[in-house]
Design a binder for these strands. Structure first.
Lengths: 200, 200
DNA sequence: CCTACCGATCGGTAGG
DNA sequence: CCTACCGATCGGTAGG
């Protein structure tokens, strides 16, 4: 019986370290030997805790997908609230997931392509569902006259693209808190760049 | 003496095929043997045309960087034009580079991390210079009252993030031409999503 | 969790 | 452009 309980399970520790390495070097360029060294053990020992390298990637990608869906559901639970408010809350929820673990987010965004079938197809279906949910919210806002956009599809794409760029530059020790970042991003995306009407 | 000249050099053919594979599977997960097979030759034969796998990546990444800078320079050559016009032209130029070769663009955007030093650092410096150029344009527009944004840094980040998402969904055989896409993206980014003022 | 190891595959080269 | 090959490294397993 250990006198001090480990702060988190060995498995969770492997996931966490692997995620950081997948983010920095990419999934394919990260070897199980490097991962083991980083954790202070031998390569073979990893396999008493995990089944395969891809299993780690699978857990990270699908775990984050769950987080994104949960955030969106909470943000839009008050269906009677103004759409702009729901959209703002959905943006904030998305940013919160991205900033809570930006390494896992970067893996979610870029390394899913190394999932083998059928996981890869399942993952893309989830990602698509999420995108559709955002688009539907924007379309509802347009129908009610609260939002306007030349094209709802484009609006959803640019919105998510802008948010998903965050893990590329976010630093947990930066000047801005996640909530401040979320607020500024929402402000930027909702108001656009142009001050006055200009001819097209 | 061949009776029919090759349409492009073997080297350019290697670059092109490798770029498509780097995009689909990632640089590290693409083997020189698969590349050779795709080209209908043996792995060793590649090395009469190229020096190394990384050399291909280097050419793609730095070649595209040049294209982006050239496009931006042309778009902002008329320094006396309204900033909003220059910005719109810079957006269009950026989109034109992205759509002309979306495979190379995707590699430029995501695979540069596999460059070894010092190329990697040089590349990041170039990317940063480009970002700064966009930001400076936006700041100039704000100073002259043509543009408004809560934060010029955020504005530049969301702008480029939205544009750079394009290679992820652009299809050359889609309904929209590159110029139409550029126009809609510019419209979306300049005008924002909100119709009426709402309380913050 | 380690030691010792498996077969497979990697990027690249020599010599023709 | 091919044949034949190099040393290195890969993900993973057996047995303890």
């Amino acid at each position: 019986m250990p006198t001090v309980a480990p702060q988190r399970s060995r498995k969770a520790q492997i996931d966490r370290t692997a995620t950081a390495m997948f983010r920095a070097r990419g999934f394919a360029a990260t070897s199980m030997r490097e991962l083991a060294t980083e954790l202070g053990l031998e390569a073979g020992s990893l396999y008493s805790h995990i089944k395969s390298k891809e299993e780690i990637l699978h857990r990270v990608c699908f775990g984050l997908a769950e987080d994104f869906f949960a955030g969106f559901a909470a943000a839009t639970a008050q269906g009677s609230a103004p759409i702009a408010t729901q959209l703002r809350q959905a943006i904030e929820a998305h940013v919160r997931v991205l900033t809570r673990d930006s390494a896992a987010s970067a893996v979610f965004l870029h390394e899913w392509r190394h999932l083998s079938e059928p996981a890869r197809t399942e993952f893309l279906a989830l990602r698509d569902r999420y995108e559709v949910a955002f688009r539907a919210l924007i379309q509802r806002g347009m129908a009610q006259g609260e939002l306007h956009a030349p094209d709802a599809v484009f609006a959803a794409l640019t919105l998510l693209a802008s948010l998903n760029w965050l893990p590329a530059w976010y630093r947990p020790d930066g000047k801005l808190t996640p909530d401040e970042i979320a607020h500024r991003l929402a402000e930027q995306l909702l108001s656009g760049l142009r001050r006055t009407e200009e001819p097209v």
